[in-house]
Simulated assay, not measured.
Amino acid sequence: MTDPYRSPEPAGAPRPAGDAGYSDAGYPEPEAHPPARRSDERTRRPAAEPKRSSGVSAGVWIALILGALILVLLLVFIIQNNVSAQFQYFSWQFSLPLGVAMLLAAIAGVLIAGIAGSVRIAVLSHRLKKSNRSLAEVERILDR
């Protein structure tokens, strides 16, 4: 009688002779000369399948729909907040509808953030180019 909790013996392991608990059905035939394995075959993983993207056009359509929705919401905000408000900036005095003034302030904020982000990107790009030049110089020295 076979023990269901016993782990199977590895392929090519010696089988006890005359033991009724062992059958030939559970064992593969031992190979005369097993194929030689390179050490990297055990650690190599199969290549992952590339992710399939739905394409650029789907992203563009989603962005257009979201942009249109935001514009409609902004239009509703401006129409509902059409109360005129007085503004002073240094010596200038002017009046604008409150919704328009808030929209202009938001646009100014986005422009300032964009300028600051562009400066940061330029600084990081300069650092990257500098480090790439240094790396190329080190590689050139090591290749001598």
Rank of each mutant, 00 (worst) to 15 (best):
T2K: 13
R6P: 06
R6K: 11
P8H: 13
P8I: 13
A11T: 11
R15N: 07
P16V: 03
Y22G: 04
Y22A: 05
D24G: 15
G26K: 10
P28S: 15
P30W: 14
P35R: 12
A36Q: 04
D40W: 04
E41A: 08
R44Q: 10
R45H: 09
A47M: 07
P50R: 14
G55M: 13
G55L: 14
G55H: 05
V56K: 14
V56Y: 12
A58C: 13
V60S: 10
W61M: 14
A63R: 14
L64S: 12
G67R: 10
L75D: 08
L75W: 03
L75V: 03
L75Y: 08
I79L: 08
N81A: 06
N81T: 06
V83I: 12
V83Q: 14
Q86A: 12
Y89T: 09
Q93T: 13
Q93D: 15
Q93M: 07
S95M: 11
P97W: 10
V100R: 07
A101T: 02
A105N: 05
G109S: 09
A113S: 05
A113F: 01
A113Y: 01
G114S: 04
I115E: 04
S118W: 04
S118M: 00
A122W: 08
V123G: 03
L124Y: 00
H126I: 05
H126Q: 04
R127T: 02
R127K: 03
S131W: 04
R140A: 10
I141W: 05
